[in-house]
Design a protein around this nucleic acid. Sequence first.
DNA 1: TTGCATACATTTGCATACAATATAAGAAAA
DNA 2: TTTTCTTATATTGTATGCAAATGTATGCAA
Lengths: 237, 237
Amino acid sequence: MSTDWAAHDLKVQNHHGGNLAATSRIRHVLIAAITAGDIAPGARLKEIDLGQQLGVSRTPLREAMSALKAEGVLSIGDDGGLRVRTLDYQDIHALYQLRAKLESMAAELAAAQASPAEREFIAEIRAKESILVNDGINPATLAKLNGQFHQSIALASHNSFLVETLQRLSILMVLLGPTAYSLAERVREIGAEHDAINNSIQTHDPIAAKQAASIHLQNAVKARLQLIASGHKDNID
Amino acid sequence: MSTDWAAHDLKVQNHHGGNLAATSRIRHVLIAAITAGDIAPGARLKEIDLGQQLGVSRTPLREAMSALKAEGVLSIGDDGGLRVRTLDYQDIHALYQLRAKLESMAAELAAAQASPAEREFIAEIRAKESILVNDGINPATLAKLNGQFHQSIALASHNSFLVETLQRLSILMVLLGPTAYSLAERVREIGAEHDAINNSIQTHDPIAAKQAASIHLQNAVKARLQLIASGHKDNID
DNA sequence: TTGCATACATTTGCATACAATATAAGAAAA
DNA sequence: TTTTCTTATATTGTATGCAAATGTATGCAA
């Protein structure tokens, strides 16, 4: 395996005082590496190797892994070693099923009680996304914007635990493989579905929003299953 | 503050191989201490003191705290110190709102697709609970059985992420204070509500199960708010 | 060849030591 | 008295070393 994925650094987003450096950074780097496919699900993470590649000692590394284990990203395999969690067919269904329920709940609540500023914010993200789609921007950018769209809706639900939970589930999505706004066809569909959600929110229609989000996720899992079946491998919404 | 809560030990429930000793144990002890009210929300956790009381060094302690932070039980306060998370009025609403959605989802799925064995298991727990209620058993035992009831339903949903998420939320419930099956009146109501859920599951009626679970949680939050208003302090379902 | 046992190597778990940073207290100057 | 600078102390962050546990390989015997 190449060792260059340690290059997944990023400005340490330490807004006020938090756990500035290592532990938090390691967590992000590991997630990034998994997202990029540099570390595959099932791969065993050995503390010493990992520490050397990341340039940190085992102590903060273990803390990061402890957190990731709690989040369900890592798990202890049959051999006792810590591994990247693997999702089987049933897990994929379960994950999407739960996300569908929660995303539609978020959309419903957002449509009912988002503030004007929040509605505008959601609309702006959707507009940006729409433009980028037409420009044929790279998948990674679209995936990021997609995440922002969903998160802005979650935030507008004004339910912090819903936000946390969806955040957690979206991290688990990386276990399905690299994101794939690479299928032009599906990209268009996603745009239309996002539009439906956004419109419902803008018109204060909770029922429609809930419905639209539900359909969106239903199509997402369908697309995912197609990808799996075709062995094509790639992550969609 | 008394230091005797370190006595919250417990047989190391290490069924196959897990993290037998310190890190895992610390996590449980801390949760138990918070549940019992020995450590109040908002309290700052200082590594050295804590380590001495628990008889462990800071390293495993930090790992446990790192995990609890990821789970949302602990959070970093304004001063940068790690504290037990405090829930404000809105948080309580949000927590119950999310639980309501997920518990009803679990009940719905369980009613639709639980195996015969799973249905029997759920019914047995309910029966046990019913007997204990009539015997006037202590609140702690009832709370434990209540947890088993809800968990057995979650498991019967056959959605592992739903199980994980509900598990996580139920841990956060400890932040609301000590459990309170101490209100005789509410105990009876809970029994009736559990019966409704159980019956719907036994008769394979997903819609009724969903409805019953939803009502159950709605009443739970109402009871909780009453407790808060009366300053009576005590945890209900 | 298969099963088992023992020895070896690897890896994790924990503790201690060290470093850096934040906090509080106190003294000096305005 | 108030403010600020300094110093001391408390607390968290990181590294390393050691011990225990666990997986793995090798060899022997059936």
